[in-house]
């Protein structure tokens, strides 16, 4: 199993994709931290909050600044997850992978471990950007850079979010055999369809309370406990651990179902 995991890491780090994505991660982390660092530290009145402008405690503000790049980040690890399996089918390297490790469940297990690791590595890259840039902006605006220990929990959970989205990608990459289609569909769902669905479901009372908080994007946001929308119609986010469980459930179902399919199918 360790051999298979090592092979998965090497697969990832021997194509050009990895450093391009690493740069994107760093830039997104730093850039969005600066942006949110300015936005969330604007003086606010109660009226602003009532109009739905995001507000929060200093801890939540710090969380939001440091995880500002997270939405872009998990989109990128989603892509990584899709590519980690999709490119194997596309370029037919899956043949030599399964020749080397004929117990396919072992291969899938190695991919899961490697993707969690890769998610964490990219998370660290993203955090390096956002912490450096965010701490400077927060301090400059007269806010404490690390107001509570809770900030560190958020940073750690940010890494987990990235890893779990990579696993969601792994599942999507198997279930949608065409890699390009898998990329378009997954990114489209995560960034466009799901937010729209969230808004629409939010108009419906029961959906607003019982469905929207459980959507993957909302669960991811709950995990990092950032600023929240005020106002009457605000979504009540899950607690961080419930968010983590929900997102882990998505990852487990998608990666699990995908792996089950891979283990059974003919490779020809």
């Amino acid at each position: 199993m360790t051999n298979a995991i090592k092979a998965e890491f090497r697969k990832f780090f021997t194509t050009r994709m990895w450093w391009g994505l690493a740069i994107a991660m760093f830039v997104a982390g730093a850039g969005l931290a600066v942006l949110f660092g300015f936005l969330f530290t604007q003086p606010q009145s109660a009226a602003d909050a009532a109009r739905g402008i995001p507000t929060g405690t200093p801890e939540q503000i710090a969380n939001s600044v440091y995880t500002g790049g997270l939405q872009v980040g998990y989109l990128l690890t989603l892509v990584i997850g899709i590519m980690q399996i999709g490119s194997e089918y596309r370029h037919k390297t899956i043949t030599s992978t399964f020749l080397g490790t004929p117990k396919r469940a072992r291969v899938m297990g190695a991919k899961v471990v490697a993707l969690l690791g890769i998610g964490a590595i990219y998370g660290l890259i993203s955090l390096a950007g956002s912490i450096i840039a965010g701490a400077i902006v927060l301090s400059a605006r007269g806010f404490e850079a690390f107001p509570t220990a809770g900030v560190f929990r958020t940073l750690a959970l940010g890494l987990l979010v990235l890893g779990l989205w990579a696993l969601i990608g792994l599942g999507a990459g198997i279930l949608i055999p065409n890699q390009v289609a898998a990329l378009l569909i997954s990114v489209g769902v995560a960034w466009i369809i799901e937010p729209i669905a969230g808004v629409l479901l939010g108009l419906w009372d029961w959906g607003h309370d019982h469905i929207v908080p459980y959507l993957p994007t909302q669960a991811s946001a709950a995990m990092v406990n950032g600023v929240t929308q005020g106002g009457d119609n605000a979504i009540q986010p899950l607690s961080w651990w419930a968010g983590a469980l929900v997102l882990a459930a998505y990852a487990a179902v998608l990666a699990g179902f995908g792996s089950w399919r891979t283990v059974r199918s003919d490779i020809s």
Binding site: K11, K92, T93, S96
Partner: peptide, 8 residues
């Protein structure tokens, strides 16, 4: 059909 990743 054992192919290689073109970028590797």
């Amino acid at each position: 059909a054992t192919n290689f990743h073109p970028g590797r």
